[in-house]
Amino acid sequence: MSSPNNQSTATTPHKRWVKGSHWIITLSFLALAFTGFEMIMVHPRFYWGEVGNDLTPALFELPVSRNYKHGGWENSSPFFAQQGSPITASRTYDIFNQNGWGRSLHFLAGWFLVVTGLVYLLAGLFTGHFRRNLWPGSKEFTLQNFRLDLASHLRMQIPPAANGPHYGLLQKSTYLAVIFFLLPLITLTGMTMSPAITAAYPFLLKIFFGAQSARTIHFFASIALEGFLIVHVLMVIKSGFKQQILSMTWGK
């Protein structure tokens, strides 16, 4: 095995709270990704800063619904007399909009993610799960090991299922990035789009450069998490799908 796994001979299975939170978060994430895409279809334009709408330039646009570059605007008029004044215009186009259920389902799933995520974080901290199973030791965390692990992954040499939290260096680093960077980032940028939350905590608008920047960062964080999901499932398949699913469910 080229992979620098220091697997103990006595394999400890996944804890029940790890299994439970894993699947609740999986379902929440799928609901969030689905409704998130629905919301992009309603307004498939992305911006930077505090402001962005159909009458201001976009950073980029996605051709994902009939709302893409619909151009249905009339009675355009400037607010001020000077050149280059901001304008207003009336929308004549009947846009695609399923945000009624889309938003409510997004936030409901968000509650499941946040509450389960907090329970998971506390449990992970206090049971020593993070320290024992996710945090790489200083001997393990070397550039050499990282390079070796990456190379074996690129050659698709994936160690077989360990039936519990016995992870390689690349795997640990990825999980840490998802748990402590991507999920907190996507949660906080999500909250930065909320007018009630930013009124209470205006620093959110500062650290993410505005409500529209937060929306754009939220989108890229979701792409990164979807990428993680795909690679994660691929690795589960390569390392023994049936056994991995069993060890994350009712198997011992």
Binding site: E50, N53, L55, I87, T88, W111, A199
Partner: peptide, 30 residues
């Protein structure tokens, strides 16, 4: 749930951010 949690946890009289005159932007009417 969102309503109850916002009303319970967020300070009720906090103000929404206010901007400069130069920040005024184009504004769609829908």
């Amino acid at each position: 749930l969102t309503y109850v949690v916002h009303r319970t946890l967020l300070p009720g009289q906090s103000m929404a951010r206010e901007y400069q005159h130069s920040d005024i932007s184009s504004f769609p009417a829908t």
